[in-house]
Design a protein around this nucleic acid. Structure first.
Length: 267
DNA sequence: AACTTTATCAACCGCTCCAAT
DNA sequence: TATTGGAGCGGTTGATAAAGT
């Protein structure tokens, strides 16, 4: 007996989500939470697969999402984390508040990968190209060739035990020029400079960001939403939310709701 | 201006993981 | 312990925009 498909492929709609569908999904989750993704589409009146709803929510509609291009520091952190974790995009994303695994994966494949190759670094091994993976990695060879990404030296071998990195990784630092905002820089530099905090971030325990999301998930009480000024392109047409309410708060979640009609969200 | 190529990103697919039974 | 089914993850695709010729 085969396994039942997650949804009736003949009934479910595919392709880009419409504003109307977004509205239904947001409205339902705000009101009821997402108890069961499989059952959600029917309950919410959507002709979508539960998986599709989950993806849409986690990658696009979630209120704590920070959209727009990754800042230099975020990019640097992704490279660093990728060197430790490999293509574990969800784990990497969990270290970058407001970023999704899909977003990071896309960014890696479309931008970072190319930059690293351009710099003569193998994106998969993080070793210089034309060099055996086991050979000693010498970051000084790279610093002169890197344009806007600098690779930090790997201290010791990459180790991960049950998802928790050992101490010599936790003390690693990220260097490089940046073009992100002062607040981001301050935040990130504090993280990097605080070994204890960084060590904590390496652990698999729930991060502060995740916790804050959890806190705000019960109807988003007390959560501040903001528009990320850095966003660009198509993303600018969609809601940009973050729980911290930093970086200039000129577009709130409620504004977005207003576009649909606040009443539609049950407020 | 028209066409082609390249880049980007939202969304889908199929698989694995893991909790419940 | 084995089975089942939901959730989540990573790879890939396809549509669209932007850049180049």
């Amino acid at each position: 007996m085969g396994r039942q498909p997650c949804c009736d492929k003949l009934v479910v709609k595919k392709g880009p989500w419409t504003a109307e569908e977004d509205k239904k999904l947001i409205n339902f989750i705000l009101t009821n939470g997402h108890c069961c993704w499989r059952a959600l589409p029917k309950l919410a009146g959507l002709r979508r697969c539960g998986k599709s709803c989950r993806l849409r929510w986690t990658n696009y509609l979630r209120p704590d999402l920070k959209r727009g291009l990754l800042s230099h520091d975020e990019e640097q952190l992704v490279i660093d984390l990728h060197a430790h974790l490999g293509n574990k995009w969800s784990k990497i994303a969990s270290r970058l508040p407001g970023r999704t695994d899909n977003e990071i994966k896309n960014h890696w494949n479309t931008r970072i990968k190319k930059k690293l190759v351009k710099m003569g670094i193998d994106p998969m091994t993080h070793q210089p190209l034309n060099q055996e993976p086991n050979n000693t990695y010498n970051p000084q060879n790279l610093s002169s060739t890197s344009d806007d990404i600098s690779m930090k030296p790997r201290s010791g071998s990459t180790k991960e035990t049950n998802g928790t990195l050992t101490e010599d990784e936790s003390s690693s630092t990220v260097t490089g020029q940046n073009n992100s905002t002062d607040s981001e820089n301050h935040l990130l530099s504090n993280i990097y400079n605080d070994e204890e905090l960084f060590s904590h971030l390496w652990s698999d325990e729930t991060t502060t960001a995740e916790a804050s999301w959890s806190d705000s998930n019960d109807g988003f009480g007390g959560t501040l939403y903001h528009h990320d000024n850095n966003m660009s392109g198509a993303g600018a047409d969609f809601p940009i939310w973050s729980p911290e309410g930093i970086n200039g708060n000129d577009w709130t979640f409620l504004d977005y709701c207003q576009d649909f009609g606040v009443h539609d969200f049950g407020f």
